[in-house]
Simulated scan of single mutants.
Amino acid sequence: MKKWIAAASLTLGVAALAGCSDEESASEVIASSSAGDITKDELYEEMKKTVGEQALQMMMLEQVLEEKYPVDQETIDAEFEEAKAQYGEQFDMVLSQQGYDEESFKEMLKLNRMQENALVADVEVTDEEIQAEYDKMKKEVSARHILVADEATALDVKKQLEDGADFAELAKEVSTEPAAQETGGDLGFFGPGTMDPAFEEAAFNLEPNVISDPVETSFGWHIIEVTETREAEVEPLEEIRDQVEHDLKLAKADMNQIGTVVRDLLNEANIQVEDEDLTETFDALLQEPVSSPAAPPAEEPAEEETTEDTEE
């Protein structure tokens, strides 16, 4: 969620830039004091100097995305309610800290979703994959884990557990997870989409009371034990199918390609910039990145000449 904050805030915070250049209202006074007046035109020029290019890029991107990948308000409202439930009583405080009100936060969610839609436009998933993902959503697992720095240590932890070591005590002794000292590695119940993908895949495929092989994630190496499973309450598939499909496509998509997707969309839009101070705004975005030239192959070291020892 937070990865879009800077970009979305920029778009929302300088929205006035779009309307400031109207010739009829450019000289309209928007603030006055005993020291003088400030007009719309003056504000536009000042904003153009500070955030003009970034703002124009984001505003144009939003328009292009809106045309090709619109998002209905029902989807945005659902994401908003999900975020609200996630943060609970702290929700209003989190919005305030990030400089949002409810309206601007929904605008950020909309921009986020449109970019996701563009990224997954050519990604395909099957009905079987959707059904399998939905079936997984109906299951929650309670698991505990021990996190260590390397595979060798993880293998040693696994052996100690199989030899009868107490899981909670061993977690307190060797786990690098700070919370392990309090929890003994217990994570409680969780459903799909809440853990690192590799960790989640391992946990959801484990039978209860079976010690996993070492599982590598961005946090380190885990030894996992599922202690219990239960049915989760989920809406009927026909009501959430679109979201399940979207999430599956997003999981398959190459997130590193978002820059290429944006560049292609902007190129197709045939952008013309009339303000001469902003004519280079899209130059870098519209060009394909230049690949670094390949390093020349290393020269083979010359073979040393050998001379046979001769008797003098």
Rank of each mutant, 00 (worst) to 15 (best):
Q131M: 10
E102S: 12
E124L: 03
Q131L: 09
N117C: 13
V125L: 04
G185P: 06
A179M: 14
N117D: 15
V125S: 06
P178S: 14
S104Q: 10
Q160Y: 03
A168K: 06
D150I: 03
V120H: 00
I130P: 01
V123H: 00
E103D: 15
E177K: 06
V123S: 04
E162Q: 13
A165M: 05
N117V: 05
M108W: 02
T126P: 01
V157I: 13
H145D: 15
V157H: 02
T183N: 13
R144T: 05
G185H: 05
A179P: 07
V125F: 01
K138L: 09
E151K: 02
A179L: 12
D150S: 10
D150R: 05
T153R: 01
M137L: 13
A152D: 13
D163A: 15
K106R: 15
L161I: 09
A180T: 09
M114T: 06
E182R: 12
A118M: 08
V120S: 02
A171V: 06
V174K: 05
E182L: 11
R113E: 11
G185Y: 03
A132E: 12
N112R: 13
G185D: 12
M137C: 08
A143Q: 05
V120R: 00
E177G: 07
Q160K: 09
N112V: 06
D166E: 12
V123G: 03
